[in-house]
Write a protein that binds this DNA or RNA. Structure first.
Lengths: 145, 145
DNA sequence: CTGGGAGCTGGAGCGCGCTCCAGGTCAACA
DNA sequence: TGTTGACCTGGAGCGCGCTCCAGCTCCCAG
């Protein structure tokens, strides 16, 4: 397939695809007689995997490193890729936990706002005099508006 | 507390804190007689919440909007905040699903690499002749290296 | 054989989210 | 009273990850 079709299928722009090639994130594809890029299904699969790595927070630097390893033969390359994936796996697992926690927090806050909207509790708009009273370091300084 | 202490507690840099204030993400704190910013515990809590919103993918634009609403009294503000949080909640829930899927994918890939490393299966280094044979659009074009 | 659409290259530009700097003030401590 | 270090402001700079552009070639339909 040509670059336009790959763009449609991958959801990336044509410019982005050429940019990815330039920086080495995707291998240079074959060219037809007119010098136009011709991609195969493997390219699309690779972009899909890259997208998942990116969406789960793997940085550009690491994605580049992984891409580089991917085109290098040898067990050393495989080992380093595995290690990267394991490390990333752990990060994803941690994110999963934080996401779960945040989900609960958001649900709590939404419930609170609902109670405020229904007039069940007061809107705690300003944080009361709390700020002006303060504790700790603030007490050691003269305060003014 | 002064800005340096807030920076240490929040994990943000002093510059970032001042930047956040400039763009309106955090409200301007009180100042002491020397013109130095004096923060209270509420500021730290707000930064913590902001951080969670950010870490779970809420964009700067939305965080700014939320920050703006937060200092506005009235039930309309509360309602909009609730709606934002509900919407974000749904996004987080979706991310949670994708993260779970990716975790499984990573585990699979790690397992595969382990088998390759142990010599149990061959290293599928180049995607074979697949690319050169091609299917679909590629066949309609003359091909060249 | 002509017109239009897709693709090509090299390079400039851009928005985000900080980050750094110069040049100064101020407060605490010795 | 002098030194030190945290803090102040305004503004420039920066790295990332694209995105856009000019000016060109090529292919295919009509």
């Amino acid at each position: 397939m040509m670059i336009g079709e790959l763009a449609r299928h991958s959801g990336l722009s044509v410019d982005t695809l050429r940019y990815y090639e330039k920086i080495g994130l995707v291998p240079p594809p074959l060219r037809d007689t007119g010098g136009r890029r011709v991609y195969d299904a493997a390219a699309l699969r690779w972009l899909g995997f890259l997208e998942r790595l990116k969406a789960t927070g793997l940085g550009m630097r690491e994605r580049l490193r992984y891409a580089e390893l991917r085109v290098r033969p040898g067990v050393a390359s495989v080992r380093e890729r595995r290690e990267m994936l394991e490390q990333h796996r752990d990060k994803v697992a941690a994110d999963l936990q934080r996401l779960t926690d945040t989900l609960a927090l958001l649900d709590d806050k939404v419930a609170l706002y609902r109670r405020i909207e229904s007039g069940e509790v007061a809107d705690p708009v300003a944080p009361m005099a709390e700020a002006a009273i303060g504790g700790g370091a603030a007490r050691r300084r003269k305060e003014v508006a």
